[in-house]
């Protein structure tokens, strides 16, 4: 579905990512893991054409860089980590922006658009908040608004930068289950950055481990998050520490 070959990103003369290779197939959830500064977010932004890069990114054989923005938006959508809405748009208006690529300039919003917006709002539990200003929402609610927007956009590949960011525990579980459900539909796939390694293990079907812009491992999540890899990247016994933490609950 998505094939990445020899991807490198240099920002301000500093190499951020070097020679990354991977691919994603329909039905897969690829987790990008690694410590801070590994280049995980930059990788997502390169995939969505937000930062300049060298190398090739192809969606079903077609070079993504050559696509029109609207065509790209119908295939893949990015959920950013930070949301900085400038003005008091309503929840509905922000979700509706997700329909931008689906309609022409001269038409208003059609019935399909309205349905997609309402369905996305329902799925994210925002139906009651549709006419609220986004400036009055909590961080978690705002995160759900943008998740609703990307659902309304109906792309085939979701690029999610810390989707559980700002979310209380009950919403964190909900959001991951929501994404899991979305993934069950045919020819859907997800690439996400997840800081929490337990969440990564739980939901990943594929893993890509990055460290300081270098690709450490790619493939089966069990192998990618193996003890030796974790030791090499974090310099500690990650699994042991996790088990130690969990023992607090027994």
């Amino acid at each position: 579905m998505l094939t990445v070959k020899g991807l490198s990103v240099t920002l301000g003369g500093k190499p951020i990512l070097q020679n990354i290779h991977f691919d994603v197939q329909p039905g897969q959830w690829l987790m990008l893991v690694g410590p801070n500064g590994a280049g995980k977010s930059t990788l997502l932004h390169a995939l969505s054409q937000g930062v300049p890069y060298q190398g090739a990114i192809a969606f079903e054989g077609q070079e993504v860089a050559r696509m029109k923005a609207a065509q790209r938006a119908r295939l893949m959508g990015l959920l950013s980590q930070r949301h900085e809405v400038g003005y008091s748009f309503t929840v509905q208006e922000v979700i509706r922006l997700g329909r931008y690529a689906q309609r022409s300039h001269w038409q208003g919003s059609g019935e399909a658009d309205q349905l997609a917006v309402l369905e996305a709002a329902r799925a994210t539990g925002l139906t009651e908040l549709m006419d609220h200003s986004v400036l009055t929402l909590s961080g978690g609610e705002l995160q759900r608004v943008f998740l609703a927007q990307i659902f309304a956009q109906q792309p085939r590949l979701l690029l999610l930068d810390e989707p559980a960011n700002h979310l209380d525990l009950q919403y964190q579980a909900q959001v991951f289950e929501m994404i899991q459900d979305w993934l069950q539909q045919p020819s859907h796939a997800v690439i996400s950055v997840v800081h929490d390694l337990s969440l990564a293990r739980r939901y990943a079907t594929r893993g890509l481990l990055l460290n300081r812009g270098q690709q450490v491992a790619f493939g089966d999540p069990g192998e990618v998050l193996s003890a030796s890899h974790l030791q090499a990247v974090w310099g500690m016994d990650v699994a042991g520490w996790m088990r130690d933490l969990l023992s607090e609950w027994t």
Partner: peptide
């Protein structure tokens, strides 16, 4: 108008929803 809405929500967001930024 709609493109400016997208920019007002955020430039990354505008790019993601399909605006030729």
């Amino acid at each position: 108008g709609q493109e400016l809405n997208a920019f007002a929500v955020g430039e990354d967001n505008a790019r993601s929803v399909g605006v030729e930024v």
